[in-house]
């Protein structure tokens, strides 16, 4: 890990203790403002934003490492969206508004518009219905990423309707967003526009899942070493070690996927076929890892206290936001047939 990532990891360990993540999920709370202040002071929101806008302008590989740390430590997801999507999207459009996000004066979140439920009016206004988005408290802006475009919408517009949707991933500010004839603040065409804003956000989202999978695998290995049944530790049962081996294989595949994504972005060679492939695979594998983690733990893995569900909920909500397993597979199929 880079020095920056190690420092970030240590800071998050203090700022976001696991027990508090559980509490937040319990009463559907959001990021405590003190924690948010600390993260902003560390420059989190400027992670990839250009230096002119007060950002750190991190390279994709470094950004991905930071996101894996965020996933392992359960950083509230909307903060990922502010740093990886809102700040650079506003920055790419040359708005001083980027500075407001980097400095924490503007907050928000983002969501993915997978299907054709979005329509553009002839006057450049956008309508979408029922899109899952994750929002910081007092959010003013939301970034929407679609395979063909990225838009930033002002939430204060009368055409915006938000409905709290906290069934799956509580404490993360998840909402269903409906937008009717709203003029976006910013529109970027394509994945790689503005230096790859949308692709960067998606890569960060997937890297976050890598961090979570890494964490639940470590928890599972420790548990299987310690827990004894039939007079021996669980790791003496091959059925258990094979589950752990499959989890490890999935984790390594996820790492390879994200590394390749970063490489292709850096080379300016990312094609929609690979991106669509990663959008199906990484969440699907992360999900398998979480499900096996729960299985390896037995009853304790199913308890609220133990908290495996926090990682599992995060995976499920990302997978569902991207359209679900079947739909992301079909999108990958469509992208492949187009290239073929």
């Amino acid at each position: 890990m880079s020095e920056l990532a190690v420092a970030f990891d240590q800071a998050l360990e203090e700022l976001l203790p696991f027990s508090e993540a559980l509490d937040r999920a319990g009463d559907n709370g959001s990021v405590p403002s003190g924690v948010r202040e600390e993260l902003l002071a560390m420059g989190w929101n400027g992670l990839v934003a250009p230096e002119e806008a007060g950002g750190l302008g991190l390279e994709t590989t470094e950004m991905i490492e930071m996101c894996a740390v965020a996933g392992r430590r359960l950083l509230p997801v909307a903060l990922l969206d502010e740093a990886l999507l809102l700040a650079p999207a506003l920055g790419a459009a040359g708005r001083s508004a980027a500075e407001a996000v980097v400095g924490g004066r503007a907050s928000g979140g983002a969501g993915y518009v997978a299907d054709a439920s979005a329509t553009w009016g002839s006057d450049g206004t956008l309508s979408v219905s029922g899109v899952g988005v994750r929002l910081s408290p007092q959010a003013q802006l939301v970034g929407l990423v679609h395979p063909q475009w990225t838009a930033v919408i002002p939430l204060g517009d009368p055409g915006v309707r938000l409905e709290q949707a906290d069934a799956l991933d509580r404490g993360q500010g998840v909402h269903l967003l409906t937008v009717t004839d709203v003029e976006p603040d910013v529109v970027l065409e394509g994945w790689m526009n503005g230096g790859g804003v949308a692709a960067g956000w998606l890569a960060g989202l997937l890297a976050d899942l890598v961090g979570g999978a890494d964490q639940v695998l470590s928890m599972s290995v420790s548990h299987a070493r310690e827990r004894q049944q039939f007079g021996r530790p669980l790791v003496r049962f091959q059925a258990v070690t094979h589950l752990l081996a499959e989890m490890k294989a999935r984790l390594e595949l996820m790492r390879s996927a994200v590394a390749r994504l970063a490489f292709l972005m850096t080379e300016d060679a990312l094609d929609p076929g690979f991106l669509a492939a990663a959008l199906w695979s990484v969440p699907a594998y992360a999900r398998q890892v979480c499900e096996s983690a729960i299985q390896v733990h037995g009853g304790i893995g199913f308890t609220w206290e133990y908290g495996l569900h926090l990682y599992y909920r995060r995976v499920l909500s990302v997978q569902s936001m991207l359209g679900g397993s079947l739909d992301t597979a079909a999108q990958a199929g469509r992208a492949y047939l187009k290239e073929d």
Binding site: E252, L253, R255, S256, A257, A259, R260, G273, F274, A276, A277, A278, W280, S281, L326, D327, T328, A329, A330, Q331, A332, G333, R334, A335, Y336, L337
Partner: peptide
Amino acid sequence: AALAGIGRVHASLEMLTAQAYR
């Protein structure tokens, strides 16, 4: 269903290649 099947296999092959490159 065919789109999803082709997509899943395409995605898995891309992941296999990414793994082999690493």
